[in-house]
Amino acid sequence: KNAAKIVNEALNQGITLFVSDNKLKYKTNRDSIPSELLEEWKQHKQELIDFLTQLES
């Protein structure tokens, strides 16, 4: 999976991924984040940080 797909899947579940101080963060109104999503974010962390940083610049 690529970073764009992961970010879109998160958005579809009401979760916004973003970068703050070079760290991957998220915002959501959900009570909890599915563990498989958290695991996927960890596996692709640097790719996600790079992707989101490019989007914001």
Score class of each variant (00 low, 15 high):
residue 39 E to M: 10
residue 44 H to G: 04
residue 3 A to S: 05
residue 45 K to F: 12
residue 43 Q to N: 12
residue 43 Q to V: 13
residue 32 S to M: 08
residue 7 V to G: 01
residue 26 Y to F: 09
residue 34 P to H: 04
residue 18 F to E: 04
residue 6 I to L: 11
residue 26 Y to T: 03
residue 29 N to P: 06
residue 54 Q to Y: 11
residue 48 L to N: 00
residue 6 I to P: 00
residue 8 N to Q: 15
residue 30 R to K: 10
residue 8 N to T: 14
residue 25 K to E: 12
residue 35 S to F: 12
residue 24 L to H: 01
residue 32 S to R: 09
residue 5 K to Q: 15
residue 56 E to P: 15
residue 55 L to I: 10
residue 21 D to H: 09
residue 43 Q to F: 11
residue 52 L to G: 00
residue 9 E to I: 05
residue 26 Y to R: 01
residue 10 A to L: 03
residue 36 E to P: 07
residue 18 F to M: 06
residue 9 E to M: 05
residue 14 G to M: 04
residue 25 K to W: 10
residue 27 K to F: 08
residue 51 F to G: 00
residue 4 A to D: 07
residue 21 D to R: 06
residue 47 E to M: 13
residue 41 W to C: 04
residue 50 D to H: 10
residue 44 H to N: 13
residue 3 A to Y: 05
residue 13 Q to K: 09
residue 48 L to A: 00
residue 20 S to R: 10
residue 42 K to P: 01
residue 8 N to D: 13
residue 31 D to P: 15
residue 57 S to T: 13
residue 29 N to A: 09
residue 11 L to W: 08
residue 31 D to Q: 09
residue 46 Q to W: 09
residue 14 G to H: 05
residue 45 K to W: 11
residue 24 L to P: 01
residue 38 L to P: 03
residue 15 I to S: 01
residue 21 D to G: 12
residue 30 R to G: 09
residue 46 Q to P: 05
residue 47 E to L: 11
residue 38 L to A: 06
residue 51 F to Y: 15
residue 4 A to G: 08
residue 32 S to N: 14
residue 2 N to A: 13
residue 49 I to E: 03
residue 43 Q to D: 07
residue 35 S to W: 10
residue 7 V to W: 08
residue 35 S to K: 11
residue 51 F to C: 02
residue 13 Q to Y: 12
residue 1 K to N: 11
residue 13 Q to E: 08
residue 49 I to Y: 05
residue 47 E to W: 03
residue 39 E to K: 09
residue 48 L to F: 01
residue 52 L to P: 00
residue 45 K to L: 15
residue 57 S to H: 14
residue 43 Q to Y: 11
residue 47 E to D: 09
residue 44 H to S: 06
residue 25 K to G: 11
residue 11 L to D: 04
residue 5 K to W: 13
residue 38 L to N: 04
residue 34 P to E: 05
residue 16 T to C: 09
residue 37 L to T: 05
residue 14 G to Q: 05
residue 2 N to L: 13
residue 34 P to M: 03
residue 56 E to A: 13
residue 45 K to P: 02
residue 43 Q to K: 14
residue 32 S to P: 12
residue 19 V to P: 02
residue 41 W to G: 01
residue 51 F to R: 01
residue 1 K to C: 08
residue 9 E to K: 08
residue 51 F to S: 01
residue 4 A to S: 11
residue 57 S to K: 04
residue 8 N to M: 15
residue 36 E to I: 11
residue 51 F to P: 00
residue 17 L to A: 00
residue 40 E to D: 11
residue 41 W to I: 10
residue 27 K to W: 09
residue 26 Y to K: 01
residue 22 N to C: 08
residue 1 K to A: 14
residue 37 L to Y: 06
residue 36 E to F: 11
residue 31 D to M: 06
residue 34 P to A: 05
residue 40 E to K: 14
residue 25 K to R: 13
residue 40 E to W: 05
residue 29 N to C: 09
residue 50 D to M: 07
residue 45 K to R: 14
residue 25 K to V: 12
residue 25 K to H: 15
